[in-house]
Each structure stands twice: as C-alpha cells, then as structure tokens.
Amino acid sequence: MSGLKYSKDHEYLRIEGEVAVVGITDYAQAQLGDIVFVDLPTIGKKVTKGGELAVIESVKAASEVYAPVAGEVVEVNAELGEKPALVNEAPLSGGWLVKLRLENPAEIETLMDEAAYDGFLKTL
C-alpha cells in the first residue's frame, strides 16, 4: 500500500506530519492530456474542503483542482512554472502541486485509500 489518500475528484494526499502534499492522480493526468500550465495558489491562502486550489490547463481545457481537505497553503511546486509536463510525467512525485497544513486532520479519514480508489476507478 502506498499510504496515499484519494478523492473522487482524482486528487491524492500524501501525509507528511502536519502537512499534506496534494497532487492529481495518474488517471487524472491521463484524462487531461498534455498539461501546459498550472495556476498555483499564493502561499498562505486558506482553502476550505472542496474549494478551488489550483487550475491545470491543457491546450484545450482548463480544469480546477479542488482541495480534498481544508488547510493553509504552505508551499507550492515552483518547478511546475518551468516544467508543467512534470504533472504528466510524474504526478505522484515531481509533479505534486501544493503542500497544505491541515486544518482538521480528521478529514483525512473521509478520503479513499489506494484499494478503494482503484475500485472507484473501475466504476468509471
């Protein structure tokens, strides 16, 4: 098991202490196609669960990324400014989007684990 948590909007969360690394899943990046730009939030922004966290653009579409849990943005992946393709190439590692300081760690339990997410994907 990866220890990642997943949302139905195809975001993942990797917990590192009080902070969660948020990105989009491999399934999501494949659906979006070649990513050309990632509009990241400013550091310090507070987001509610389900609030807009970032916007990922492919050539012909712009897709909002919603915060899977509430929190405060403590870091963004600055490397995506130069290399948005990282989200396609390595969504779970180099292509992460933001780090959130969790407002309510209990919210994590509302998300799916890997097995549940894999099952969810099969229903799509």
């Binding site: 070649d34 050309v36 730009f37 653009e57 492919s58 050539v59 012909k60 948005p84 393709a85």
Partner: peptide, 8 residues
C-alpha cells in the same frame, strides 16, 4: 502543428 509546445 504542435499546440502543446506552443502553449508550454
């Protein structure tokens, strides 16, 4: 034409 290249 490579639209991805143009946009990135």
């Amino acid at each position: 034409v490579d639209e991805t290249l143009a946009a990135r």
